[in-house]
Design a protein around this nucleic acid. Sequence first.
DNA 1: ATTATATGTTAACACTGTTAATATAACCCT
DNA 2: AGGGTTATATTAACAGTGTTAACATATAAT
Lengths: 203, 203
Amino acid sequence: MGIKEKRAHYKEEFRREILNAARELFIKEGCEKFSMRKFADKIGYSPTTIYLYFKNKDELLLAICEEVSEEFLTNLRHIRASQSNPLDALRQALLDFIDFGFENPNEYKVFFFTRLNVYSAPKEFMEKKSMRRDSYLEFRAIVEDCVEAGKLRRMDIDILTQVFAISIHGLLSMTIYNISFPWAERQVLSVALVDGLLRGYRT
Amino acid sequence: MGIKEKRAHYKEEFRREILNAARELFIKEGCEKFSMRKFADKIGYSPTTIYLYFKNKDELLLAICEEVSEEFLTNLRHIRASQSNPLDALRQALLDFIDFGFENPNEYKVFFFTRLNVYSAPKEFMEKKSMRRDSYLEFRAIVEDCVEAGKLRRMDIDILTQVFAISIHGLLSMTIYNISFPWAERQVLSVALVDGLLRGYRT
DNA sequence: ATTATATGTTAACACTGTTAATATAACCCT
DNA sequence: AGGGTTATATTAACAGTGTTAACATATAAT
């Protein structure tokens, strides 16, 4: 290995270390309280150093976002492979989604609420490879399985996929952000939502 | 009228003027770009002056929030009074909700995403009068009408109400915030969601 | 007229993300 | 091995944020 590649390798390694530390602090402190300066302080570097590895805060958050998405994608693939009944797979995917959000509110926030104008145009999102995109496609595939198996109404797959995603997101973002409202018990609310949705689009 | 009350009246009037100006700027500039300093500059006062009328930024945003909620409540009452079929009323309420969000994204943001810890405890939210609370209750009443009329499944009214609210919120917050994703056409997505929901909880 | 209060301002504090200028260390090549 | 180049990290600074303390002035009460 040439010395130049070795250098690039070390840089990449350090980038990952920064990323992991950032994610850790992010989860602990929460989305709103995470600041570049505090983070730099935490890892014992000056704030400007981070900018040598990440263009700006958005890119750092996006990198965290991609990491979380990767875990998510792995889980979706596992569900799809292990469940024989596609409707059960969908149901489990939805419930897992919800559980993940409830258990990791801060990760969920970065997962959905970082300014994702990083992908610039909506069109570009689908063209450029990203864990976020692949997660969507994997989730979409599960929905498609259900339609193909005649379990869900035959309608535009993207519409159907997005309706599911949107509803779950609503549950999570509402209960996570709007914490001063006396929401019903999570478990009950989740099951009511998922069952209602599946019922609403069943054949 | 005593001079003291007159003074209080003037103060209240000025507070409203500030509030209206704030809301206007808020809508134009957007939630994220709204700053106390810029706002103060806009209305020709120093930033500290605003603090004589609003405790802090959160309270100012909350006041805007309450104003928006009031319009919302009015609309809900109108729907409930004018529609004879409760299911039609619910359907229209949901679609109006969506339209409002699409047409006023910035107002929607403040409506749902200001730190509402202002209400401190969830329990307090239901006890203290607020336009937000009354909007919820009015919406809940429409849902209850549907259940009473045997149009919707007989289940916990709050659960049912919250499931609807959550789903619509998901649609709005996703399409408003996550603008880099190639969402399906709004109209189609909205109708698919509302129809699916009503179908999912119908008797 | 003098005291008290209400209203508004300036200056400052403690933050934020980000960049320009600068120092130091590491590597490359002759 | 030494001089030049590049990579890495730092300090200082800019422009912005919400918010408060200290201060001035106009109005009302006594």
